Amino acid sequence: MKIAVVCANGKAGKLIVKEAVERGIDVTAIAKGKNESNAPHYIEKDLFDLTKEDLQDFDVVIDAFGAWTEETLRFTALH
């Protein structure tokens, strides 16, 4: 089975890639910037620039994209 993990450099993405690699699955990480996961294959591309052609060779595509707002992740600014 060939899987792709989109946003593989993030907190969840790295954990998903790690688990898949440990299970012997053929994993390709997809993220912008350098590969920070332990995936043996890597596609350097921004999430919003992906096309269906980029993903057509995979059996499974996992989207590990996460975003936050002040409402979902509270923080206090230092004054």
Score class of each variant (00 low, 15 high):
42 Y>A: 05
22 E>T: 12
4 A>L: 04
25 I>F: 05
76 T>R: 15
42 Y>I: 01
23 R>G: 13
34 K>R: 15
30 I>G: 08
20 A>H: 06
18 K>N: 10
46 D>I: 01
28 T>V: 11
16 I>S: 11
61 V>D: 07
76 T>F: 15
58 F>S: 10
64 A>Y: 03
34 K>N: 14
3 I>W: 06
49 D>K: 08
2 K>H: 02
13 G>W: 01
29 A>Y: 08
77 A>C: 13
37 S>K: 08
79 H>I: 15
35 N>I: 05
56 Q>E: 11
54 D>F: 09
67 A>D: 11
20 A>M: 06
34 K>D: 15
47 L>V: 01
28 T>L: 08
15 L>K: 15
57 D>N: 14
28 T>E: 08
19 E>M: 13
13 G>S: 00
43 I>N: 11
79 H>W: 15
53 E>R: 00
44 E>F: 04
8 A>Y: 01
64 A>V: 00
12 A>E: 05
6 V>P: 04
3 I>M: 08
49 D>N: 10
22 E>K: 12
46 D>V: 00
35 N>V: 02
56 Q>N: 10
19 E>Q: 14
78 L>I: 11
79 H>Y: 14
60 V>A: 03
8 A>E: 01
3 I>V: 11
1 M>F: 13
28 T>M: 09
5 V>G: 08
26 D>P: 03
61 V>G: 06
36 E>M: 09
28 T>R: 10
11 K>L: 13
48 F>Q: 02
5 V>D: 06
14 K>W: 06
60 V>Q: 08
5 V>F: 05
61 V>C: 00
32 K>M: 04
22 E>C: 08
2 K>E: 00
76 T>D: 14
16 I>V: 13
10 G>Y: 15
78 L>C: 03
63 D>T: 04
8 A>G: 08
38 N>M: 09
48 F>C: 00
39 A>T: 03
10 G>L: 12
68 W>D: 06
79 H>N: 15
75 F>E: 09
19 E>A: 14
11 K>W: 11
47 L>P: 00
52 K>N: 04
58 F>E: 10
55 L>G: 09
52 K>T: 05
40 P>M: 05
29 A>E: 01
6 V>A: 02
73 L>T: 14
3 I>C: 07
58 F>Y: 12
44 E>C: 11
72 T>P: 01
33 G>L: 00
67 A>I: 12
66 G>I: 12
67 A>P: 07
38 N>F: 02
20 A>P: 08
37 S>Y: 07
37 S>I: 07
26 D>V: 02
68 W>R: 07
56 Q>V: 13
37 S>C: 09
64 A>G: 02
66 G>K: 14
75 F>Y: 13
78 L>K: 09
12 A>H: 04
40 P>S: 09
43 I>K: 13
59 D>E: 11
69 T>A: 06
37 S>R: 07
41 H>M: 06
67 A>L: 13
42 Y>E: 03
37 S>T: 10
57 D>A: 09
50 L>Y: 00
66 G>S: 14
24 G>A: 05
33 G>F: 02
43 I>Y: 09
5 V>P: 01
44 E>N: 10
68 W>S: 05
56 Q>T: 12
67 A>Q: 12
34 K>T: 11
79 H>K: 15
31 A>Q: 12
41 H>K: 10
30 I>D: 07
13 G>T: 01
52 K>D: 04
57 D>W: 03
4 A>Y: 00
43 I>V: 13
